[in-house]
Write a protein that binds this DNA or RNA. Sequence first.
DNA 1: CCGCTCATGTAACTGGTTACATGATTTA
DNA 2: TAAATCATGTAACCAGTTACATGAGCGG
Lengths: 201, 201
Amino acid sequence: MASRGKKTGRPAPPREPRRPRRSARARELSELESFTLGLVWQLGPCSPYEIRRHMKGSPSTQWSASAGAIYPLMRRLEKGGMVESRPARTGRRTRREYTISPAGEEALRRWIGPPLPREAVSVTYDPLRSRARFLGAATPTQRRAWLRDAEAALDQVAEMVRAWQTEYGGENPYLSLVTRNGELETEARRRWIGEMAQKLG
Amino acid sequence: MASRGKKTGRPAPPREPRRPRRSARARELSELESFTLGLVWQLGPCSPYEIRRHMKGSPSTQWSASAGAIYPLMRRLEKGGMVESRPARTGRRTRREYTISPAGEEALRRWIGPPLPREAVSVTYDPLRSRARFLGAATPTQRRAWLRDAEAALDQVAEMVRAWQTEYGGENPYLSLVTRNGELETEARRRWIGEMAQKLG
DNA sequence: CCGCTCATGTAACTGGTTACATGATTTA
DNA sequence: TAAATCATGTAACCAGTTACATGAGCGG
């Protein structure tokens, strides 16, 4: 597999033994870890399952909230001292309840910032934008269909955001700020598509 | 590690032997794979190094364009018939040049859409938004500092987007659409922060 | 000659994903 | 009682990451 062309690289440099993984206390938390920690703070004592449900219900998540991600993550947070857990039960059903610890709250505040890491501020990732970049590879017919599809889909998203706003926005001022962001962003994307449609005919 | 609390799950269910990985021809391409394929289309015959340079230069990427990602990725694309490669050289320096294949162009067009996958359209991921959601955990002082930081950082981003627009926007109408998206998005985020600052005083 | 950038690549790790297994509880 | 949902979890896999190694070529 490494035998094509001229091959300037050496075959296999020697390697040091593996260093042990740093715990969640020493390491910087990942975005998902931090966000989850935030949810624990927000929800109060809660089980991983509730967290997953919450994530799936929210329109603004990039994560699948899969069990394979969340359960080990909670354990990691606990090992790092960010949360504490205790077994709980309803009838014969067992569950594990997590609560944020003081160290966890501090880590959460640290993650929120300031300072804001540059990559948190610089332009976000938008799959529509990625695709638009290569619209030149499409036929004019495909381009027109693309624009129509994008318009319709974004209008649907706008609808969803509004619905979410009326449903959850009232409870928590910060949550309503979040949905407001979604509104503004969707508007901006919608306008962008509109401009494209005009320019590309 | 799995011995806390009540533990309802079974210890270790039996597992099937591993099925072989599907090639890039059969599988759906990942976002990074597709985006890279698009760059090969856009740049014409080019080396992985050029692609990496291009990605790093662009302000709108989520990817690190690390060698460890791109080189294996190009091999995968080649194995899947999406690109063709041939060794090239300048003096005694060797390089590998990739060109998109007809199958690759078709895959690119398919990725662009329509149809647009729902997750490509629904609200994008914004780390600022994630953090804002938990601003309630911060002190008022921290909140004010956060807003100031965000404002300043976004103004800087706006500056960068403008610079990129004047530099690259002219060449390619589609690239200029991309930067226009960045402009509108940054504006929207900036306005959002402004609204927050007003509301939270 | 030194240090920088060009250029190609690999090894080790890791934070996620999909896909499953298991059992309790609820609802049709 | 059968099907759906609640709830917890693991195993296998994988697409990325960081960190390195190697050498060519170039400017000082």
